[in-house]
Design a protein around this nucleic acid. Sequence first.
RNA 1: GGCCCGGUAGCUCAGUUGAAUAGAGCAACUGCCUUCUAAGCAGUAGGUCAUUGGUUUGAAUCCAAUCCGGGUCACCA
Length: 590
Amino acid sequence: MAIAALLRDTAIESLTTLYQQSFSDKDFQINQTKPEFEGDYTIVLFSLIKKLKKSPEVAGNELGGYLTATYPHLFSGYNIIKGFLNLSIAEPYWLQGLEKNYADSNFGRQPLNGERVMVEYSSPNTNKPLHLGHLRNNFLGWSSAAILTASGYDVVKTCIANDRGIHICKSMVAWQLFANGATPESTGMKGDHFVGDYYVLFGAELKKQVETLTAQGISKEEAEKQAPIMLQAQQMLVDWEAGNPDVIALWKKMNSWVYAGFDVTYKRIGSDFDKTYYESDTYLLGKDLVEFGLKKGVFFQKNDGSVWIDLTADCLDEKIVRRRDGTAVYMTQDIGLAVKKYEEYKCNKSIYVVGNEQDYHFKVLKLICQKLELPAADGIFHLSYGMVELPSGRMKTREGTVVDADDMIDEMVNVSRQKTEELGKVKDFTPAELKDLFDTIGLGALKFFLLRVDPKKKMLFNPDESIDFHGFTGPFIQYTHARIKSILRKEPVTDIALKKPLLTLEKGLLIILEQYPAIIEQAATEYNPSLIANYVYSVAKTFNSFYTEHSIANAESEEKKQLRLRLCQMTANIIASAMGLLGIKVPERM
RNA sequence: GGCCCGGUAGCUCAGUUGAAUAGAGCAACUGCCUUCUAAGCAGUAGGUCAUUGGUUUGAAUCCAAUCCGGGUCACCA
């Protein structure tokens, strides 16, 4: 058990014995002791003294005395400052952890949960290429899945391709009008970019037509509906739904171009899925559930035949679940898909990695599923993340203010090449090794940049300032790992007994390393990869301070050297493991 | 307008299950490469935690109000 949890349990037990009352973890708080005070962990006594009606000195001495006397293998001493009981953890505890687990980043922890959970992420539209916001989604989704797996869940990764609808038809119409039969092959373009360009062309042509119409005195709103190219797109959607073979063939062709493009990007960033659902297969789902809901009295029908749910009692609005023409809406599909997913995978938990603009949608989705008493309705969780914004505000495809994902990755890899060449530390690498290293560092910088921020919060990206490679960044942590590996290549770890006492920086590093399993649990519980990012940064930072201060190869004694080598080994393992949970590789050299 | 989310150093972000003097990185300034990788380390400077009031032994954190920013309230997805 991690020391913090062990300390908590031990304190509760001791308090119960001492005072013949029951205590819980709510009665006191345990913090890491601030560096300016003596001790490793601190019990905050204020709320305890209220319950015990004793002064902090008295209560602190009684508890501190009892703990050190009863558990000498855990506690080597204590002091009380104001209402804080600072405890020193006994060195054997740290040394034992280091001796037993230096090769195991899990500290011997055996996560055995086995519960199955589904993580849906990425979910692109197939009419345009991915942008920076999609990258945040992909990295978050992949990383959350990895963290849940590490925490013992059986994770099923899914993706829903939004492959039908008016947006696709816009690209299709524009291609028919302007492409003259051009293809990604004939133009040498990546398929998703190729198709995306026609989506942009559609917008440009629509704007022209709207301007012509408004010049004739038609309102802008009306002009957008009346514009011939818009009518064409709408007709194409009708034809698609009717199964018109020509339209279907064109749709299949253009989607296949996009998928080919996505495949390249996904492969590069490491996104993968156990199952991909296609909206074209699922968009009719959920219709029978409307009938079910009507019978159950959860839904009601309006005079025009449309079906609704009244959520005003839950402080929400009325929401439509079936149009008057009998067709399903987005919400209906999502309910149907939730049922389908459950039937296929029997996951009691289902995580949807979707932007926070859809907070309302998912609130309603969960509520409807609960009211319909669908299985696993309570397990629906919207992992809502904030938009990536530019200094000018939100990215908008139509206004061309979008940071393209492929461009972004290319740029990061280029910068990593430049910096690596400037430093000139890997001149002996083969071209293949170099390429691999540039990808590792460039993607590492990008992934870390997007994952270090709390998912819930919107974040800002300034294209004029390139993403940093110093400080709180991926490359900094990768560099720390490479540095350690360089030592470990030269100095073998042996079984020699470790030597007391631990120096401040050695113990400080151990204290942080020991927290890793608890951090994984927390990140899994909160679906928050940024906790891992912040943690692994503090590990690297702490290691670097230790590294600069104390020589490893030329330690004072062989025992000290071995102790430090094990610290190195353990740090490298944890960095590699934690970065792995973020989907970031760590190089042996850089 | 209703509902939701946010406002912490010049900039980007931690800290938000209440706890010791509010922390990092970037940018600025000072030092440190004849010793294990300087993509590093050590240090200086930078704060009315949006504002006001309240609860508390104790508030960036909880409550209320106000101001500012964003999202959302489609028979689009």
